[in-house]
């Protein structure tokens, strides 16, 4: 029997905007899972990224609000200067806090809390970036039985982040960005 997934988390840093656009543009507007994203941004960025991606994608993209209920067919983007976490009742939670891995939002913070909530029903994706953020989180996702996907470092604008993730944990799929969206779509089609 195929495993069924409940959520996808994606972490991206330098070069992430284009990679995200490529991936999210391949998801349909009735996609059966929620997608929760941390993209490192400048501290004083507004919701430009969510607005931009929403314009270019069929699936609905919005900035995450505190206490918002997580719904399928939505992409939630972490706001600048807040950590984004997931609560047991499948709501989003935000926190003003110290940076983790020099970053707020931090990918590890999102991934670790998502692993706690979704366990083996979670898909974690680490994309391009010049940071090591995300690798500990991805490791936890794997340890809890979730699926791990990393952008092929050779295709990344900044290979450090995907390479760091590959180094610390077992990765199920290493893919170029133009294949990741299709891959995620097929994952949901195979459900049940």
């Amino acid at each position: 029997m195929k495993k069924s997934y409940q959520a996808i988390v994606i972490g991206a840093s330098m070069g992430g905007m284009e990679a995200l656009k490529m991936i999210l543009a391949q998801l349909p507007d009735n996609f059966s899972l929620p997608v929760i994203v941390v993209q490192h941004q400048m501290r004083d960025s507004d919701d430009f990224l969510a607005v931009y991606l929403n314009r270019h994608c069929a699936i609905k993209v919005k900035e995450a609000c505190a206490h918002e209920l997580i719904l399928p067919a939505y992409v939630y983007i972490a706001p600048a200067a807040y950590h984004l976490l997931i609560e047991e009742d499948k709501t989003l939670s935000l926190s003003v806090d110290l940076p983790v891995n020099y970053s707020i939002p931090s990918i590890d913070v999102l991934f670790e809390s998502a692993a706690d909530v979704y366990g083996e029903s979670l898909v974690g994706v680490v994309l391009t970036g010049a940071s090591a953020d995300g690798s500990q989180g991805l490791k936890k996702i794997k340890a809890y039985g979730g699926l791990t996907v990393v952008q092929d470092p050779n295709t990344a604008e900044a290979p450090k982040m995907p390479s760091a993730a590959i180094k610390v944990t077992q990765i199920d799929h290493i893919l170029p960005p133009d294949k990741i969206g299709v891959f995620l779509r097929e994952l949901t089609n195979d459900e049940g």
Binding site: L85, I86, E87, E88, S93, D97, S113, D116, V117
Partner: peptide, 8 residues
């Protein structure tokens, strides 16, 4: 309190 951050 929101539990995710508390747990962290």
């Amino acid at each position: 309190y929101a539990q995710a951050s508390l747990k962290r």
